[in-house]
């Protein structure tokens, strides 16, 4: 007889299915199932048949049974998996919150740092500006106090009572500096222009506004006088003598 047929007709498979086999028979049957695909197929078919048959004959269980059962399980064996999931979920939540808070503080700190860096840059610029101004003032002061610098006061009828214009002239350094105070304000399209007279020719030495205090002017060697006129805004080629404000002769 064919070995597979012999196994299938022995009834051992049905007993194995129902759980009626001895341990020895079960081990034997498991070997058959592994060894013979037809036996394995029959076993799978039987399993499907009894499961379907059970489904067809299912009966509703009172709801209380499930609650009682779940209670018993919880009491007998607290659910480590669920608890683990809950704990890990809680930890994840705390971690996420911590990360979010850290991110928030980091972002705030970054914004604050950025603001501080901008403020620092502005202060640094201002500081450099002040330093430059101080250096300029210090240089001007040094120039004014220099023994070789000569001081000349410009005078003129157009000046107001408080108006002052003083020129510091240094032939050694070929440099000149004009200090002005309270000069009359000009119209928007006007400026003061300074002229040096040399060999009866007026040569422009620059322009300035009444708001300035010190004006560095172009030195001219052997200049005979210095004159200030009011000119149209920009620079005139020739001085407008009618609008001479002040002058001084270098003697």
């Amino acid at each position: 007889m064919d070995r597979v047929k012999q196994i299938l007709e022995s009834g051992l498979l049905e007993s194995y299915l129902m759980g009626d086999c001895t341990e020895e028979q079960s081990l034997q049957m498991e070997k058959y199932i592994d060894a013979y695909p037809q036996v394995k197929k029959a076993y799978e078919d039987y399993q499907i048949a009894i499961e379907n048959m059970a489904d067809e004959n299912a009966i509703e269980v009172p709801h209380a049974i499930k609650s009682q059962l779940m209670d018993r399980i919880s009491q007998e064996n607290p659910n480590p998996s669920t608890s683990s999931i809950n704990t890990s979920g809680l930890l994840s939540g705390i971690l996420a919150l911590a990360l979010l808070t850290a991110a928030f503080f980091w972002w705030n700190a970054k914004q604050e740092l950025s603001r501080l860096q901008e403020d620092y840059a502005l202060l640094k610029d201002k500081c450099e500006e002040k330093n430059q101004m101080f250096a300029v003032k210090a240089g001007q002061l040094k120039f004014i106090k220099d023994a070789s610098t000569k001081t000349f006061v410009l005078t003129g009828e157009s000046f107001g009572n408080n108006s002052e214009a003083v020129v510091f002239w240094n032939r050694n350094y070929n440099e000149a500096l004009l200090q002005i105070r309270n000069l009359p304000a000009l119209e928007k399209n006007q400026c003061y222009q300074i002229w040096a007279d040399k060999n009866h020719k007026m040569i422009s030495r620059g322009t300035f506004q009444s708001t300035q205090e010190f004006v560095e002017i172009d030195y001219l060697d052997n200049a005979e006088s210095l004159n200030i006129t009011i000119e149209p805004l920009g620079c005139s080629e020739e001085p407008t003598i009618e609008r001479l404000v002040a002058n001084v002769l270098f003697s």
Binding site: E9, G11, E14, D45, A49, M53
Partner: peptide, 13 residues
Amino acid sequence: VKTRVRYALKEMK
């Protein structure tokens, strides 16, 4: 009995 059980299971399948 075994044959009938086997047959029944096969038929049900």
